[in-house]
Simulated assay, not measured.
Amino acid sequence: MALTQGVCLLDRAGALPGGGRRWVRVNHRGDEVTLVEGVALAIGTAAPLALVEPASAAAVLLAAGGGAVDDLAGDTGVKGLRGHLGALRQGRVTTGALKVGVLVGAGVLAAWEVDRDRGRGASTLAAAGVVAGAANLANLLDLRPGRALKVALLVGLPLARTQPAAAACSGAALAVLPDDLGGRSMLGDTGANAVGAALGVAAVRHLPPRARWPWLSVLAGLTLVSERVSFTRVIDATPGLRQLDRWGRR
């Protein structure tokens, strides 16, 4: 909670890009919430990570920056991968398409460093895709309070003992979770992309190179499924998932 409060001080001081009102959104209940949680989480993840894995921290901040552009200047009339690709075919570059490019760049940056000592090849491309795909998937999950953070903790805590990116992300996620569950703030693209990128980095460092392609296929498959299937409907219709999703939520 202290992380979010600290960034809120920047908000009141007028230090956030675009001014405070640019970081306010209406959630699924119709309440106004602030997106400063996402800024707090990105900083809270990247700052300690920079001490041990500077390239990973840079990838997290790059993913967060791509999300921030979409948060502040995104075209709400264009939705999903299909919508952004359709706009590109018409010669229009949306902030969502720009964000995809930034996420790929973050993935390449992280993967290039991860494979520095083991040799770079096709599996390095798969690693970049895992980081970018995880960042995008986290954003697709951020549709209800606490959902993306719960998934992040389920994935991140088992990896936290050996992976600094997972440890930093899990610590930041625990810090902002109460405000998220309480409906006072939300991750937005800024925070969700940072969460996913951090966990993607942890995953590619933890997985053997041969496992990267299967995981990339899973992430790509879920992204394509999301174009036609509502994750929220699936979760609400599945006992166990529904209770976990609603746990702690106001």
Rank of each mutant, 00 (worst) to 15 (best):
S230P: 05
A47T: 14
G133H: 11
G133I: 04
G105E: 01
T238H: 12
A197V: 07
A172W: 06
L222I: 06
P48F: 06
A2S: 14
V155W: 14
R25Y: 04
R89W: 13
L222D: 01
V104Q: 09
P178F: 02
A198V: 04
G65K: 11
A110N: 06
R147W: 06
D180P: 04
V130P: 02
V24N: 07
A197N: 09
A47H: 13
K150C: 02
K79A: 13
L61T: 08
G80T: 06
K99N: 11
A172S: 05
D180W: 09
L9I: 13
A148L: 04
R25S: 05
R12Y: 11
R118G: 05
S217M: 14
G119W: 06
G200Q: 03
A50C: 03
G221Y: 11
L85H: 11
A13V: 04
V151S: 03
G18I: 01
E32K: 13
R161A: 15
L9D: 10
A111F: 08
G133Y: 11
G105K: 12
R210P: 05
S123M: 11
D142M: 07
M1Y: 11
L241R: 11
G200F: 06
A194G: 03
R161I: 02
S230G: 08
V130R: 10
R25A: 07
L177K: 09
D11V: 10
G182I: 02
A46Q: 06
L199A: 02
A237G: 06
A68W: 09
S226L: 05
K79L: 13
G83W: 12
E227C: 05
R12M: 08
N27M: 00
L10P: 02
L216E: 04
L72I: 07
L241F: 15
A110E: 02
A152E: 00
L207S: 11
C8Q: 15
A15T: 07
R250K: 12
D75H: 12
R147N: 00
A172T: 05
V130A: 05
Q5K: 14
T238W: 14
N193D: 04
V102A: 06
A127C: 09
I235F: 08
F231D: 00
R147H: 00
R246H: 13
G171S: 03
I43D: 04
A59M: 08
R12T: 14
L9W: 12
L177D: 01
P239A: 04
R242G: 00
L125F: 13
R205T: 00
A175N: 14
R250W: 10
L219T: 09
V201Y: 06
W213C: 08
A135E: 00
V104E: 01
T190Y: 07
A46P: 00
G80D: 01
D142E: 03
R92I: 07
R205W: 07
G19P: 06
R161Y: 05
L103E: 05
L85M: 14
L154R: 15
G133P: 01
G133Q: 09
L149P: 03
P239D: 00
R147V: 01
G183I: 01
G105D: 04
N193Y: 08
L88Y: 10
C169L: 12
A220R: 12
E53N: 10
G240F: 07
A132G: 11
A13H: 12
G77V: 09
R120F: 03
A2P: 01
G240E: 00
I235D: 06
T94P: 05
E113I: 02
G191R: 13
V204I: 15
A135S: 11
A15K: 13
G83H: 11
E113C: 08
T4Q: 07
N193T: 09
R246I: 01
